[in-house]
Nucleic acid binder design. Structure first.
Lengths: 206, 206
DNA sequence: TTGAAATTCAAACGATGGTTTGAAAATGAG
DNA sequence: CTCATTTTCAAACCATCGTTTGAATTTCAA
């Protein structure tokens, strides 16, 4: 059974996630959230102990969903050639380019955090970023088996960052004078292209 | 002679630049600005016609300084080998890693804009981004002389984005569990490393 | 020195922010 | 059904926000 309190909680979370992603923490008012969620003004304080508490909850949920989604397909990469695995990893990173889905909403919330990290985010990152970093490191190690720890780490970060420009500036890039519109087909093409460059850079055989 | 109005204007600009970079537009109040600048409350409205006008001014100044700084050294790149030029370009991009200087403050203001671009920024970008993109495109073209327009453009964007992860997440990366602290020497090392990967990816000879 | 223009200032304004309140309504175990 | 608990609600509260006001002060050409 879904207790009535659960449905308003869920409504608030959903509305808040969208608004936080769109306008950031400072940019969204609790009044905007309760209006979008069609709940009472005081509901946020009752259920989440204030705007801060709600944001913390939204952030945790986004983080969990995001890492789960990436790690879920981690084992598949092990079965591929290193070149295939790397291209697949990149393709998955580029996925938010295709649609304004839940996934890309979570990414947006994270983007706000990279500009000015909240303490919640900092701890979340230091506690749970390891598996994701590890995934990238595993991919890189197959190309640089003899690299020292520091180089390997930098390479992992570098790999993670390969798609960021395209993700972060999607809207700007779509407009003149660039005009780079990316549909489903184009994502595959883009992943291939970036994949080839990354593989070449790491000394693979594209 | 420096008119008295000029010094308060300058004080406001300076304080505002720092605060906007640190906390973003929504996160900084005009009261915080006037306190930091040690000017009267109404000064912002008198000199800049409101918070919006001040922000516009700060943004324009940051943009101008940033592009000038890159384009000023553009011609030097032409005299180098393509590999040298590309590494130098990357080193220059990594420059803000070294110190909390004016340059990195401008970068931060831009980072806020990439999350949620203001109309001012949009127009600024569409009007004046061309030369900077062109610089990147020139570098890339020396490696991909036969690439079509679309590929060349994507490659240019890709090149510009190579250093973003390190710049944007500097604070986080410096902390555990990564612990990537970057001093002046390390920037050179990092530029070499990234340079080699990019060159390799574009089919050069690292 | 004079006087009009430019600039500074303290105070207040209206709007919006997050949060609190106390009562009303809904819920569900006994 | 009963009644204690949980949940919703409209209204108000208080702080902060960006901006305005009108007078005081400073500036500088005449």
């Amino acid at each position: 059974m879904t207790r009535p309190s659960e449905v308003t909680r869920e409504r608030i979370m959903k509305a808040a996630e969208r608004l936080f992603a769109e306008r950031g923490y400072d940019g969204t008012s609790v009044r905007a959230i309760v209006t979008k969620a069609r709940v009472n003004q005081a509901a946020i304080n009752y259920h989440f102990d204030g705007k801060d508490g709600l944001y913390r909850e939204v952030l945790r949920a986004a983080f969990r969903a995001l890492t789960e989604n990436q790690l879920k397909h981690a084992q598949e990469l092990g079965a591929m050639s290193r070149e295939q695995a790397l291209t697949e990893f990149i393709r998955r990173q580029l996925h938010p380019l295709m649609a304004r889905d839940e996934y890309s909403r979570h990414m947006r919330i994270f983007n706000w955090e990279t500009v000015r990290p909240t303490p919640v985010f900092r701890s979340l990152l230091s506690e749970e970023a390891a598996p994701f970093m590890g995934l990238s490191a595993d991919l890189v190690r197959r190309f640089l088996p003899e690299a020292d720890h520091r180089t390997l780490m930098v390479a992992s970060i570098w790999l993670i960052g390969q798609c960021n420009v395209f993700l972060r500036n999607r809207e700007q890039l779509a407009q003149p004078p660039i005009g780079l519109v990316v549909d489903e087909d184009a994502v595959g093409w883009l992943a291939e292209l970036i994949g080839r460059w990354v593989i070449g850079g790491l000394g693979g055989h594209p």
